[in-house]
Amino acid sequence: MMKGKITNNIRRLRFDHDEMTQKQLAEKTGVSRQTIVAIEKAKYSPSLELAFQIAHVFGCSLGDVFSYEITE
């Protein structure tokens, strides 16, 4: 079975969007701030729906927010 790693650009995107806080992003997506923290630190992989919601908040594509790397 292949293994992979999901990385993200959420911290940079928050900074680029008027230094949006983790709490503000959480409120816009309907999750807790702790969930955003865990996603940013790659400790938690969001559902596909939440990933799309995050991309929508930033006005960009899913691929601009998240990347998937195969690790062997």
Rank of each mutant, 00 (worst) to 15 (best):
M2D: 11
M2F: 15
K3P: 03
K3Y: 13
K3W: 07
G4M: 10
G4D: 09
K5Q: 10
K5S: 05
I6N: 05
I6W: 15
T7E: 13
T7N: 10
N8F: 10
N8C: 14
N8A: 14
N8P: 04
N8Y: 12
N9H: 04
N9A: 14
I10S: 07
I10T: 02
I10F: 12
I10K: 12
R11A: 13
R11Q: 07
R11K: 15
R12A: 13
R12C: 06
R14E: 09
F15C: 04
F15Y: 15
F15E: 14
D16V: 06
H17D: 10
D18T: 08
D18Q: 10
E19C: 12
E19R: 11
M20N: 05
M20K: 12
T21M: 06
T21I: 00
T21D: 01
Q22I: 00
Q22M: 06
Q22T: 00
K23P: 01
K23I: 14
Q24P: 13
L25I: 13
L25E: 00
L25N: 00
L25V: 03
A26H: 07
A26P: 02
A26K: 01
A26F: 05
A26L: 09
E27N: 12
E27T: 08
E27Y: 11
K28P: 08
T29M: 00
T29E: 03
T29G: 01
T29A: 00
G30K: 08
V31Q: 00
V31Y: 03
S32D: 03
S32T: 11
S32G: 10
S32A: 01
R33G: 02
R33P: 04
R33N: 13
R33L: 06
Q34N: 06
T35I: 08
T35P: 02
T35C: 00
T35V: 15
I36A: 10
I36D: 01
V37M: 00
V37T: 01
A38I: 00
A38K: 04
I39M: 14
E40H: 11
E40C: 15
E40F: 14
E40V: 08
E40Y: 12
K41L: 10
A42K: 01
A42M: 10
Y44H: 01
S45L: 04
S45D: 10
S45P: 08
P46L: 07
S47I: 01
S47Y: 02
L48N: 09
L48Y: 12
L48I: 12
E49H: 05
E49W: 06
E49T: 12
L50P: 03
L50I: 08
A51L: 13
A51R: 04
F52M: 04
Q53T: 12
A55N: 07
A55F: 07
A55Q: 03
V57S: 09
F58A: 03
F58H: 13
G59R: 05
G59Y: 03
G59C: 06
C60M: 13
C60I: 05
S61C: 07
S61P: 01
S61M: 11
L62P: 13
L62H: 14
G63M: 03
G63R: 06
G63N: 15
G63S: 14
G63D: 15
D64L: 09
D64P: 04
V65C: 05
V65F: 08
V65W: 07
F66N: 11
S67N: 10
S67V: 01
S67D: 11
S67M: 07
Y68D: 04
E69W: 09
I70S: 10
T71Y: 09
T71M: 15
T71D: 14
T71L: 15
